[in-house]
């Protein structure tokens, strides 16, 4: 059962489940909590708490819902020396994220144009479900994408250097190593660069309907009633395959490191192990693919 610390913090004590090494903690209000209790989220938070070498608590953010191994919105910090890395913890959709574009227009100005705008965006930005993307890359060129991320896209004419300053990590994780990414993952990535995907991925024309913090909003160039475009996408099939590949690598590696997990999606290895380091390099490469992907769609949206 939850031990309610206050209105927004709900503790899952170690005694909840055998094998928990740390407590779990869910952040939610009275509206979110029943939803979180309705599926397996709580057990997934508890399962994560059984992994070796975690520090603090196994956390669930207010958007938490049932995932695979970890819940969606699950957060855990691992000790660099004693802790583990889990491909399933990072998830299939490596560097799934959003780009928000501020459009220099307010909602009234585009009121009658939304439908043609959507059609145009649909034509300019491939969804990629079954279709080839707008670019097809040779093996070496894909490695450059994996190595350089959004900078590759800029170099190839998709946007400007100024964009990089607006992207976390400047759109590139330096630890990426394309050689740690399997050919299968690259095959899936080849035709999907510059594509949105389906499922929970989307591109929307939006309107700012309420500003909570003027200062922050203006730093982002946002104001009330302004039109924005939100692109939600990730590393596509390339990232999904990296996760699939390393789930197996980690599952097989666990015997060597005498680790056992209560849910196979939580397969993990020590961070400093050969498998762990290689996964992190492949993960960074997939993240760079996602940075390049969102940058290209940003360019087309403009």
């Amino acid at each position: 059962m939850f031990k309610h610390i206050d209105r927004y913090r709900h503790l899952i004590p170690k005694s909840y489940k055998a094998g928990m090494l740390i407590d779990g903690l869910v952040f939610a209000d009275e509206h979110l909590l029943p939803q979180i209790e309705a599926d397996q989220t709580k057990d997934q938070v508890a399962n994560v708490a059984t992994l070796p070498g975690l520090v603090g608590r196994s956390l669930a953010m207010p958007d938490a819902h049932q995932g695979y191994g970890f819940c969606i919105g699950g957060v855990a910090a691992a000790d660099l020396d004693e802790g583990v890395v889990s491909a399933g913890g990072v998830g299939f959709d490596i560097n799934c994220g959003v780009r928000l574009l501020s459009v220099p227009a307010d909602a009234r100005e585009v009121a009658g144009m939304i439908e043609p705008l959507i059609h145009q965006l649909f034509r300019d930005i491939p969804c990629g479900t079954g279709k080839k993307g707008a670019v097809s890359l040779g093996g070496r060129e894909l490695d450059s994408v994996l190595h350089d991320g959004a900078a590759w896209a800029i170099r190839n004419g998709y946007g400007t250097d100024e964009d990089l300053a607006r992207i976390e990590e400047h759109g590139r994780l330096e630890s990426a190593d394309p050689a740690a990414v399997s050919n299968r993952a690259k095959d899936r990535g080849h035709v999907q660069l510059g594509t949105l995907g389906s499922g929970n991925h989307f591109l929307e024309i939006q309107r700012v309907d309420e500003v909570y913090d003027e200062e922050v909003a203006s730093a982002f160039g946002l104001q009330h009633d302004q039109v924005t475009i939100l692109i939600h996408s990730g590393s596509r099939g390339l990232g999904h395959q990296v996760c699939t590949d390393y789930l197996d690598v980690m599952h097989d590696g666990m015997k060597r490191y005498k680790i056992s997990v209560v849910d196979r999606q939580l397969a993990c290895v020590p961070i400093g192990s050969q498998e762990g380091e290689r996964y992190l390099k492949a993960m960074a490469a997939a993240a760079n693919f996602a940075f390049a992907n969102r940058q290209m769609m940003t360019h087309w949206a403009r």
């Binding site: 695979y68 191994g69 299939f92 990629g128 995907g197 099939g237 999904h240 699939t244 789930l247 999606q265």
Partner: peptide, 8 residues
């Protein structure tokens, strides 16, 4: 689009 087959 199916992302992956899971052990879930």
């Amino acid at each position: 689009d199916v992302k992956a087959v899971t052990y879930h």
